[in-house]
């Protein structure tokens, strides 16, 4: 009894046990229904290996990754400066803030028809969709970061002789950094979502193309293989962001409890 309890305290062991139960269940379930509809783990692994070795998956994954990162960088280039300005100048916040909220509240797929009319199935349309979804979280968090800068620290910076842009650089920017980072963490996830939506519904390239193409051929094993890569991307992005946080922003956890 005591032994089984202590085993349950190890989270990786628990996770291993759950997986050890899930995989056979999936295998049995897959075998009992039409494999065209629901591929078994074995079929997925075989399909994955063949699509990987013939170069399809690596090249399409690369296209998707490039799109995610390019879209993310464009969104940073728009969202961070705009967020800083809106955090600093109330007039800018009042003027822009409602529209950002409107855009962020709109389900992304609802924009697809407009993107098609305006840009056609193209890279432009893809980046339009990605930035529309990725800029708001980055912008909003940056703005909140600036607005949350402690007045006493700004005053301290001033008391020790800083003013104007220098005061910003030395006090406001570093103080907002944990919020900006939180925005980037959400932003990279948003960029992945935007990329997938665009690749599947707008301009078939990358892993989105793989999903659409293999679905048309009822190749559920290949579709699952594609989804697994996308899942892995999402997890890797989130974990990398956590790592960056832990490495560079440890002071923020101790100082103000931002997680």
């Amino acid at each position: 009894m005591s032994m089984s309890l202590s085993v349950l305290k190890n989270k990786w062991l628990v996770r291993g046990y759950v997986l050890a139960v899930l995989l056979p269940v999936w295998q049995i379930l897959g075998q009992s229904v039409n494999p065209i509809i629901f591929a078994t783990p074995g079929q997925v692994v075989r399909t994955f290996a063949s699509l990987w070795s013939d170069g399809t998956l690596p090249s399409e994954t690369l296209i998707t990754l490039e799109t995610v990162f390019a879209g993310f960088l464009i969104s940073c280039a728009i969202g961070i400066p705009l967020g800083l300005i809106m955090g600093r100048i109330r007039l800018a916040e009042y003027a822009i803030d409602p529209y950002v909220n409107f855009i962020y509240a709109t389900p992304l797929v609802a924009i697809i028809p407009l993107a098609l009319i305006w840009f056609g199935p193209s890279n432009t349309a893809t980046y339009f969709i990605i930035t529309l979804h990725t800029v708001p979280p980055i912008l909003i968090n940056t703005m909140i970061g600036v607005k949350n800068t402690e007045r006493t620290l700004v005053e301290t910076g001033r008391a020790f002789g800083f003013g104007g842009w220098k005061l910003w650089q030395k006090v406001v920017l570093p103080s907002s950094l944990p919020f900006v980072m939180a925005g980037l963490r959400i932003g990279i996830g948003a960029a992945l979502i935007g990329t997938m939506v665009a690749e599947i519904f707008l301009f078939n390239t990358g892993l989105g193309y793989v999903l659409v193409n293999e679905t048309a051929q009822f190749n559920s094993a290949a579709v699952i293989a594609g989804v697994l890569i996308i899942m892995t991307m999402g997890v890797v992005f989130a974990e990398s962001a956590k790592l960056v946080d832990r490495r560079f922003l440890s002071w923020a956890r101790g100082a103000s409890g931002i997680s």
Binding site: E155, S175, W251, A252, A255
Partner: peptide
């Protein structure tokens, strides 16, 4: 300062 006002970063 009373509350130290150190820069946490």
């Amino acid at each position: 300062f009373q509350a130290f006002n150190l820069f946490p970063w």
